[in-house]
Design a protein around this nucleic acid. Structure first.
Lengths: 341, 341
DNA sequence: TACGGTTTGTCAAAGGTTTGCACAGACCGG
DNA sequence: CCGGTCTGTGCAAACCTTTGACAAACCGTA
């Protein structure tokens, strides 16, 4: 039905313009060495023939591909979605295609798709990997890597640095009068989860208040709903959730038990991603996922020179990890604890 | 730092196994013509050398790529996210990479990325509500296309068919006593928006009740919030929104005006995507986006034989459009209209 | 022994591009 | 008019794979 005709090649353009193949090639890939008249004539013919350089052939000979890979544990999570959107926007400007893989939180699939992408990508952005550090290092021998929300010695990374914001949040809750707080954990293998849990625990200890770590979850909305039971059982007055999804679930769970937020329990989230959708508005921490995505892409695209520099500092500079500072967003899910409590 | 060594090629394996290059090639691409012993020996060496066939070279000579493209207007929308996740899962089983592009609701970008993908993909799944039909047809001359949530004569497509569900919803609202309803439109250029608006309008006319079309929106949560004003102004008692995002916004907007859902106004959504997050739970229509994604991928992957059959029916069969039946999900955002209304 | 048939493996071309090298001509100072 | 530099272009190899044509070896059989 729809006839797909063979696309024009360098040869076709060369013949049409009366020059050699290499001249045409140079017009597109290495301009400046060709006279303006020739160049214009070639471009004219190319336009007429709707010629575009064959990516496969080009990649084959240059040994590098114009694509990058983005590997995420769960593309359904709005944090990742925003990151992807931003990353994708940047790469489009570089005419760089973006492979996306959702690993369903599986370390095995992470490795599998990374290996698959390695061949066709000039680099891979690995988000919140579940993989072991040594596997990550091994992988970085096959394809350039930029880690997101995880720090591994020797590998470049970008992460949301919410430590200061989380400490601030703990302080504010204590100031409001809370003395018995809890942290609602996210996915067990997650680096961010460990970081956040540790940060709030440390701050709580410093302020001499309780910070109970609730049972581990997988980070789903349903897990948040279910966590309400334990929260009420333990009688904590404020809960800091791993992220907004869990926080929203918890709010819903509390509501189902007849409790209200923030009157009975204060709840905070993380990522500021669906705060506008839930009621009351969640007090949370900005995720900065868009910025993180942009930075990750930039580092991949800039730092992809040919193994480069003899200078010893260029290497270390490349491998450093960059934190994007997060801030507190105050809404209506926190308040003073109830008198009776 | 991390030394990246040149990957092994057919040549290396051939030398290691003491056979010719083509023998090795056939072991991987066209088995059966090689004796079991030779095959095993070759595979052994290949394993030892960590050989994997070079995708670029293979694609160059075969003329087809192992990837597909997925083009969406806004990856941030949970409907698309779910679709992507499902599509991606299917393609992973086929060792097929997935390019993703977010077009920011721009018809120009839609075209641009499709052309970019064309070269490196064996097909593109196009969720492109904005492009004109003729552009789509033109595009399908460059790369095999499967349309999502849009029907264009002669091009295969998969869409959520919610017509029956929407009619049902109208009937239920009327049965509850509503006589003055409204449709809250989504993005203006969207095919789905046109379909849904028409469907509910037709059904309302048939039932002899009012169905007012509210001012057009871009489909954002903020648009939904803003629409509350017009809803109250017009005094409608039930609003059917284009999708859940708008519906959630509307619920929030009504709440800010001191109105409650469903007591003062009934609201319905579409896609069943964030219904669990908002309160009260939205009565909505299932989006079936996962199923749609699976089907779209399958059609692309199956129907990518070489232009194929002389039979006249094979063509038409390929180009047919497949609807996935949606159903009503009843929650708590609809009720009888207030007495005074 | 010679011969058709089958199986197994090799040869070489092809696919579209990039790029080091060679070459031709223009230009310039001496 | 000659030797040199500079500029613009062409030649051909290389990247790695697939695949049709073909050779070699083997079988059983006449």
């Amino acid at each position: 039905m729809t006839e797909r005709t063979r696309p024009a090649t360098l040869k076709d353009v060369a013949k049409g313009a009366g020059v050699s193949i290499s001249t045409v090639s140079r017009v597109f890939s290495n301009p400046g060495r060709i006279s303006p008249e020739t160049s214009e004539r070639v471009r004219e013919v190319a336009r007429k023939l709707r010629f575009t350089p064959n990516v496969m052939a080009r990649s084959l000979i240059t040994g590098r591909s114009p694509n990058i890979g983005l590997v995420v544990p769960d593309i359904t999570n709005p944090y990742m979605t925003t990151l992807l959107k931003a990353a994708q926007k940047v790469s489009r400007l570089h005419a760089t295609g973006v492979f996306v893989a959702d690993t369903d939180d599986s370390a095995d699939i992470e490795r599998e798709v990374c290996e698959q992408f390695a061949q066709q990508s000039r680099g891979v952005i690995l988000c919140a990997p579940r993989m072991t550090a040594s596997h990550i290092r091994e992988l970085s021998g096959i394809v350039p890597l930029v880690l997101v929300n995880r720090v591994v010695e020797g590998i470049p990374s970008v992460f949301t640095d919410s430590r200061a914001a989380l400490r601030e949040l703990v302080e504010e809750l204590v100031e409001l009068g809370h003395r018995r707080l809890a942290y609602l954990p996210g996915p067990a293998g997650s680096w961010s989860n460990t970081q956040r849990g540790r940060t709030v625990a440390d701050r709580a200890r410093a302020l001499d208040v309780e910070m109970i770590r609730l049972d581990p979850t997988d980070g789903t909305h349903a897990d948040g709903v279910a966590a309400a039971e334990q929260v009420l059982e333990l009688g904590v007055t404020a809960v800091m959730a791993f992220d907004d999804v869990l926080a929203a679930g918890l709010v819903e769970g509390l509501r189902r038990s007849g409790k209200s937020v923030p009157d009975d329990v204060s709840v905070t989230g993380h990522d500021d991603i669906l705060s506008e959708l839930v009621h009351p508005g969640l007090t949370t921490v900005t995720g900065q996922s868009a910025r993180v995505g942009q930075l990750a892409i930039s580092r991949l695209l800039d730092g992809s020179g040919p193994a480069s520099g003899p200078g010893p500092e260029s290497g270390t500079h490349q491998a450093e990890s960059v934190g994007v500072k997060a801030t507190v967003v105050r809404r209506n899910s926190t308040a003073a604890p109830p008198r009776s409590g």
